[in-house]
Design a protein around this nucleic acid. Structure first.
Lengths: 362, 362
DNA sequence: CATGATCGTCGATGCGTATCGACGACGAAC
DNA sequence: GTTCGTCGTCGATACGCATCGACGATCATG
């Protein structure tokens, strides 16, 4: 009663408690579940049960409470909820900020994760890879999130051991050498490598030249680098064709060096080209030499569909599907939050999309 | 006593409470400040005061407590801290996920913000621009962060009105049309435009051709787009030279169209070129036409130093300084968290770096 | 009409920390 | 040897929510 009167005394703006905000600069504090209970004429616990649905509530009470929530634009306090409920509704995302090359790929991952999270009323805490394993321990001990997603796993990743110790679900995008006890999800780079090699082998390329990753990147020990390479080489051997692998940055200078090294004499046959990034600079360098993929030589690439279709000559390619991988990671994560799911490796299927950069019969 | 005995009974691993974890899968719950107090032989409040320094503590007690903290690897529970202390030690970052073009720039912003935040024991909550103004209201009411940084502000940004209502500090990177009452920080695109135009005018270019932003981007209403353009045009007018502005994507097709439109006849004088992104594809297109910036024509660019130096012919450029802007934003943000600071606009100085893509005398 | 059983709601308690008031110890001033 | 002030510490409380046990009401069953 008294409080309702005070409430009425607040002349402007939406209804809300009228006591001064503790640290507010110009407003009233956010309404609490107690405020909602008062407005709805029920107890605070009833408000809580309406929101969680963990006990039966009559339709009439339910509606009254929901109306009060709506009227006050009530939102539960995150800290209090975490403290009492032992869950934060936050997932941590460890972002590898080094290497600006893959920035656009990372953004695709991050966006998909953020959007999927919001779809289930989760938020995303952005952690940097620079904190290493200690960062994982920290968010756990501080109870800042319910689960973590870690990207850009190296073969000998120190975070693997930490992940095994943690009491919260951890999902690795990528995989370390020893993945026992870990939940890993990754793109099927093995099959991707085979599809790309096959595509070139099928049209009779006598030789394949691969423009691989830059030395920096190889040095980081990212797991999929050797995985892709090993399988590409094995498949080429199976098909009985030579494969030349050259690691170089995909910059203008890098691709020129690569082409100088692998292109045959003018008029002679060229090897089939395979690039592990979008053939952006490579395409330009080829164009300058008067060579058009699909006409003068064969080119395939490991790059996203967006990247491929942005090229003057869109390459036949295998996409590492960043969005599919994130989506799958999140759906797995939510399963983990609801109950134990055995640790395993999940691979996202590799598929090849033909775009005419390879000279196929017919 | 009894509890200490239980503690001693835990045979393996670091010392910690031995009761079962509420949701733990295999471990003990994180130690609390009470545990620390018990180990140090002081009260819980003393532990709190040691950590915050808000009351004098004797050196002896201080050390005992710090040792206990260390021994238990104690970290304060974030939810409880937020609930009791009315501060979360989290800053929200609203990331504009659309447009993959600027992904690498965004990553630079985000990384700098994350690193700076961690330097003061803050974390970063990643919010998507898709939530719009409601997202800001949400994190405020849920008390999920102490302040927010919003990127990619449009001239008519609906988040401006919301920011004025919020009780927590909001920093805009960029600025809306009406910035009354808002804390805005931005790069000085106006001066940047003038520097670039001057550089071309100084070497006697009779005309300037600008490769602007893609239509998509212009349509978004990002504030710096018209700001840059207006000032470039005004400066050119002041200098008495013609300026031709063409908006097009900086793809291969886009730059070809641009060059077709603006390049003079072979052998004739070429206009000075100004690009608002790194001249990546433009450089390739020029090279193909046998034109080298700094030899056959003059080229300046609005792009980061990293982008510039990755080019075959690094362009003389003005960098929008993403890292400086983020760093400044964070330092301002921390000031705001400690006390009121008047709303204003802060501009990061524009500077031109010469790299030889302009034919200067001498 | 007595007896359970189920449904819907309430009051009380705990989560882990920050903070306030209180209080003992100790030194300085008288 | 009192008295006052400061320093260092403690106990108690509040923060906002989730959850547990209890309890009155309603309804079907015997």
């Amino acid at each position: 009663m008294r409080i309702d009167d005070e409430r009425a005394g607040v002349a402007t703006g939406p209804v809300g408690p009228s006591v001064a905000a503790p640290r507010g600069r110009r407003g009233r504090p956010a309404p609490t579940s107690k405020d909602v209970a008062r407005v709805a004429g029920v107890s605070q616990s009833t408000v809580s049960y309406v929101m969680s649905g963990k006990r039966p509530i009559s339709e009439r009470t339910r509606r009254t409470v929901l109306e009060a929530i709506d009227q006050l634009t009530y939102e539960p306090n995150a800290g209090a909820r975490a403290l009492a409920g032992h869950r934060t509704n936050v997932v941590g995302l460890v972002v590898p900020f080094h290497n600006p090359e893959t920035a656009s790929g990372l953004m695709a991952f991050a966006e998909e994760i953020a959007v999927t999270a919001r779809g289930r009323d989760y938020d995303v805490l952005m952690l940097t890879a620079a904190e290493g394993p200690a960062g994982l321990a920290r968010v756990q001990r501080r109870a800042m999130c319910d689960a973590v997603i870690v990207m850009e796993i190296t073969t000998d990743d120190p975070r693997a051991a930490m992940a095994r110790e943690l009491e919260m679900p951890v999902i690795f995008i990528g995989m370390p050498g020893d993945r026992a006890g870990l939940h890993c999800i990754d793109f099927d780079f093995e099959t991707g490598a085979e599809l790309l090699v096959d595509e070139l082998a099928d049209v009779g390329c006598p030789e394949i030249a691969v423009l691989g990753w830059s030395q920096d990147r190889v040095g980081l020990g990212i797991n999929y680098v050797p995985r892709f390479r090993t399988h590409a080489q094995a498949r080429a051997a199976d098909r009985g064709i030579a494969l030349r692998w050259i690691d170089a940055p995909h910059t203008r200078a890098g691709v020129e060096g690569f082409l100088d090294a692998v292109l045959g004499p003018d008029g002679g046959p060229h090897p089939g080209l395979l690039t592990v990034h979008s053939p952006h600079d490579l395409g330009a360098a080829l164009q300058q030499r008067g060579l058009v993929p699909g006409r003068d030589l064969d080119l395939v690439s490991l790059c996203t569909d967006v990247e491929a279709e942005g090229q003057p000559v869109p390459p036949t390619a295998v996409s590492p599907q960043p969005r599919d991988v994130s989506r799958l990671a999140m759906s797995w994560l939510f399963d983990l939050l609801e109950g134990d799911v055995p640790a395993e490796l999940r691979l996202v299927d590799a598929r090849l999309t033909r775009r005419g950069s390879v000279r196929r019969a017919g």
